[in-house]
Design a protein around this nucleic acid. Structure first.
Length: 427
RNA sequence: GCGGCCAUGGUGUAGGGGCAACACAGCAGAUUGUGGUUCUGUUGUCACGGGUUCGAUUCCCGUUGGCCGCCCCA
């Protein structure tokens, strides 16, 4: 093969795209239902936007960004996530202000230079939402419920919502110290990775999957026990709202987010039907980010859904694929019949009936076969006999029934010309 | 960035130092103008580069890529 898709990228082929469209439509539907409005930002931004927001010491910034100089030497980076870009765009266009509530959603490709693995690609897609302007814990509950509702609508089961609070600028340092001190006592028993983490990022030890570390992790200080009063109250109210809405969750004091900007609420939705990369959705509150990027202090919360992973789970669900294929296939025999067929083809399309015909000069038999293969619902057959009577044969491909329908009757009832496609509800 | 396994038609697999096999899909036929079944035919630089060899698709090394795990994340 001379040319192949770059490592970690994938083509979404016609066989898969109906499922993608379904997922995208459901996402848009639920975001809209919750009154979020779409924002589309550039796929690349100035590098500094990401280093500032995500954090210099995070893996994303240290080794996963697609960074390149443009022709004038400015450093640009393909977006590894969307939150920073949404904040930038919101501030630049005056969408985000400290005294009003703004709800935004996005959907599109992100880029991270990582080793490809199940559920992880270098170009991947996220759908996400962000709310700016309120620190009400009801919003934390709302975004979590939004995720859960959306997944349920897609038929997902065996999901688990993990919930934690990582505190704020006030309580984070003390907790970090407590964790560090605790693990220092058991340093010799920890795995090699964790011994290194003890110095660089002790909170990460809580996330270790090594069996030998588990017993220590279980007894480690919990983030929730080290929250200051405000953070604790926020968490308690959030939990109260989730209970009120009957959203099930599991408090997981080991849940740590990998991006520096998170404060207070952190959550994740994981699926048991995925491998090691099992988080379908992750998010949390980031009350300091807007200010960090040059805005007035503005509380915010958001999340992102990994669409590849979502689709992987849906593929395992074995759900029925949406019907594909045109409504009408026009099969003709001979040049004169083709003339008529071409006219009907245009008429069908102008009336909103998806239609196609043969472009390969195939025999009638082969045309039928082609129509069958593309899953056409009906075939309209025109040959010499039909030309004389100005009446074609309309065949239902599912039932094999066939009846005579005059040329001028074929599309008489169809008048669907809005051009908005099969899912249209405008009539 | 680190480790394990792997690379053969479009897809899924067999094979083995000297005609590369099978299934499915695709395309074309099986006498006149009717799809799904059946039958026949057809579809490959055995990932790339180098080495060993009279000869490599097969053995060895490297590269690239894939899967899985670590790290991290969605």
């Amino acid at each position: 093969m001379k040319y192949a898709a770059p490592r970690g990228t994938r083509d979404i082929l016609p066989a898969d795209s109906p499922l993608w469209q379904l997922v995208e439509n459901v996402c848009r539907h639920y975001f809209t239902l919750y009154n979020y409005r779409e924002i589309r930002t550039p796929l690349f931004e100035s590098t500094e936007l990401f280093t500032r927001s995500i954090g210099d010491s995070t893996d994303i910034v240290k080794k996963e960004m697609y960074t390149f100089p443009d022709r004038k030497g400015r450093s640009l980076t393909l977006r590894p996530e969307a939150t920073a870009a949404v904040v930038r765009a919101g501030l630049e266009n005056n969408l985000i202000t400290a005294d009003s509530l703004t709800k935004l959603y996005y959907l599109g490709p992100m880029f991270r230079y990582e080793r490809p693995q199940a559920g992880r690609q270098r170009q991947f897609h996220q759908a996400g939402a962000e709310v700016f302007g309120s620190s009400d814990p009801l919003l934390d509950a709302e975004v979590i419920k939004l995720c859960v509702d959306l997944f349920k609508a897609l038929g997902l089961k065996e999901l688990e919502v993990s919930l934690n609070s990582v505190g704020c600028r006030n309580c984070q340092p003390a907790y970090r110290t407590a964790v560090q001190q605790y693990f220092r006592q058991h340093a010799k028993a920890l795995c090699a990775d964790c011994q290194a983490r003890l110095l660089t990022n002790p909170l990460r030890i809580l996330d270790c999957k090594e069996g030998s570390c588990q017993s220590f992790i279980e007894k480690a200080p919990a983030a929730l026990d080290h929250l200051d009063q405000e953070c604790r109250a926020h968490f308690d109210k959030l939990v109260g709202w989730l209970d009120a809405w009957q959203v099930k969750y599991r408090v997981n004091s080991r849940l740590v987010r990998g991006l520096d900007y998170y404060t207070k609420t952190a959550f994740e939705v994981v699926s048991r039907q995925l491998g090691a990369q099992n988080a379908l959705c992750g998010g949390g509150r980031y009350d300091n980010l807007v200010e960090e990027l040059g805005g007035k202090p503005t509380p915010a919360i958001g999340f992102a859904i990994g669409l590849e992973r979502l689709i992987e789970v849906m593929n395992k669900l074995n759900l029925e694929r949406p019907a594909e294929g045109p409504e009408l296939f026009i099969a003709t025999i001979g040049d004169a019949a083709r003339q008529v067929g071409v006219q009907l083809l245009a008429e069908a399309r102008s009336k909103g009936v998806s239609a196609d015909l043969d472009y390969l000069g195939k025999s009638l038999k082969a045309q039928l076969k082609a129509a069958d293969r593309i899953k056409a619902a009906h075939v309209y057959i025109i040959g010499d006999e039909e030309l004389k009577k100005k009446t074609g044969l309309l065949k239902n491909m599912a039932t094999a029934e066939q009846k005579e329908v005059p040329f001028d009757q074929l599309l008489a009832q169809s008048d669907h010309s809005c051009g908005c496609g099969d899912d249209c509800r405008c009539e």
